[in-house]
Design a protein around this nucleic acid. Structure first.
Lengths: 198, 198, 198, 198
DNA sequence: GATGAATGAGAGTTCATTCAT
DNA sequence: CATGAATGAACTCTCATTCAT
């Protein structure tokens, strides 16, 4: 009877799921959990709102799933810095560009939303606590020490330097949210002075 | 005729209004306009939700009133930099501390909420456009030029420098919103490298 | 201690009560029970809304009191037809003019509101049922019979004639409510054809 | 793709819409705009109150839609007089019967509510002003002139005659609203004396 | 007696979620 | 699997009523 075999169905399911995740990421990252209506996600994904519930039990589950993905992806994104070309400061420069890239890092924005909103599902909160900023700092520490040793980065406690860098970056990402023309993204070179120091 | 004279009544009204504004500022700044329920403000102010509507016609009006106040206060706060003691860099240092101060600058956060949310009342939008970042930059420009002339600030286009400084500051303020322990406020001295340069 | 003796207080009370009743009648008659807010009555009476509750336990009680008065007054008003000068048709003509008079018969309008609204307090409903249209008809019957005997009124069942006359009058009063310019009050002479007949 | 085809869906939507309009008409006509709660309409239509908002954006929109329909229908109803059989007076007699028919003319009552309430949406007010009583009078004028020429209607200014007829009719319709047993609908023949004259 | 600040039940409206088809 | 009609909890706002002064 059925014209589609199990394999094909699975493929459709995977595609739909991917489609929804992509759409939800876009909307949640920009508008936060309360500001996002399920119908917005459905529209963005080009499907009916009813179908969302075949793939995700609830708005909260969808959001939590995204947070989970975002944690993984952001860590992978930061970890990737070691595969970028050039000296430590050049690596950081490229990483910073990627993160602040306009269309770029929705995942970072989502994490920010999850971190700064109160209506976040309990499970997402826990995830964020587990994979905290500390993870990013751990990842970046070797690079920063390299940079200091190479004399490219300013001396002093590297954790402090990293923390400052990450906080500034996180802050800037949230401003990015609406492509607000008022706030213009600062010159990366000026920004990197935080790291290179005086 | 009246059992409470006009003066006493006016005093009660002023107190209540102040109480509501304070409570609303706290909640709006933290949770944004959609995330804030009128009942939260009422609870925070220790009054019934009904009473809110004796003092403000609607949630939108209350929010807009706060934005107006915030614009005035934030501009006054920044303008105040010239009355701070010390050299240009010392003035900026103190200003930065004040702005990033934990309990401090709810008004700046509110403006951020107003700027980045989609559901902001039309009038509040206009207010924000009028008193844009440009106002802040205009206010700070003389100080930055002084600083550059004194050799304390890095050379180059002062507007660019200011823009970078303000963007970083704005970003950090939003992180401040939840007193997130994860993000720790960066050392001001490290931060100021943006301005002092290499 | 008290500068006012019991008698004076009683006088104030009576005056206030009268003032409220007059104001409430005006507003209720025009806007119905739901359309009328207690604050409207207070404003119309030139007092605070709180004071209303010193004189009437509730909106319902106030409305019911008015209905009671209105029943008495309207019956008195109709009964008064016999003291008007002229032949039966002249009496009826004057009565009709009085009832349809613009500022005139608020009581009739109130009764109409009470009769046609659903939110009327139980007690007011009972009052209206007791003092029904039948009372008016009973009052008018002798006059109509006189008129018929005098050849001024059309022949036939006088109750039917009265009922028709009262229904038309009641209907016109409701149109009167808003002084709607669209509906203009018909010529009384044309109207009286109902009674005088062909 | 779709589990219900577009045609079936459209049919459901049309039915629901019709169902809601019918229910709303019944309730609004009887209780006016303030006296009507959306939940009453929902109950009358046998649906949840939430569903009302799938079909009409707001109470005001629903009311305005009904007023629009009512204007059209009432004008059509009156215009139809020319297709009724018989002489002018026979036509008017039948028209009057139809309008005063018990279940009949909710639309006329709705217009009355719209005309006499203060809380009517702006757009509905404009509609009513546009299609005022004057429209009805314009429609009826030729018939009345015919009737006068045929000697069936009383002489005199036909507009005055029509205005009187319409005012009386409108008034009677509002009494009809509650099927009040007290007010019994008058004999049409007695009523028509207004037109036929003495 | 008189005032108006204060309360809270209830109405209009939105939107996450369910479910028949 | 896919759709969108349908539901109801929760939110904003109004207004009758209470009560300290």
């Amino acid at each position: 009877m059925s014209p589609l075999n199990e394999e094909q169905l699975q493929q459709i399911r995977d595609e739909r799921r991917e489609q929804i995740i992509e759409a939800a990421l876009k909307v949640f990252a920009r508008r936060g959990i309360i500001g996002t209506k399920m119908s917005m996600i459905a529209t963005e994904a080009g499907i009916s709102h009813g179908l969302l519930y075949h793939y995700f039990k609830s708005k909260d589950e969808l959001f939590t799933t995204l947070v989970q993905l975002a944690m993984q992806e952001s860590i992978a994104g930061i970890g990737n810095v070691y595969h970028l070309p050039g000296s430590p400061i050049e690596k950081i420069r490229t990483l910073t560009e990627l993160i602040l890239d306009k269309d770029g890092q929705l995942y970072f924005m989502l994490i920010h939303q999850a971190r700064t909103s109160d209506e976040v599902p309990e499970k997402a909160k826990q995830l964020i606590e587990q994979y905290s900023i500390k993870k990013y700092a751990d990842l970046l520490e070797p690079l920063f020490i390299d940079g200091q040793n190479a004399g490219e980065f300013s001396a002093g406690n590297p954790r402090k330097l990293i923390s400052c860098y990450l906080s500034v970056l996180s802050g800037l990402m949230t401003l990015n949210i609406h492509g607000d023309e008022d706030y213009q993204m600062p010159d990366i070179d000026i920004l990197l002075r935080i790291i290179t120091g005086p």
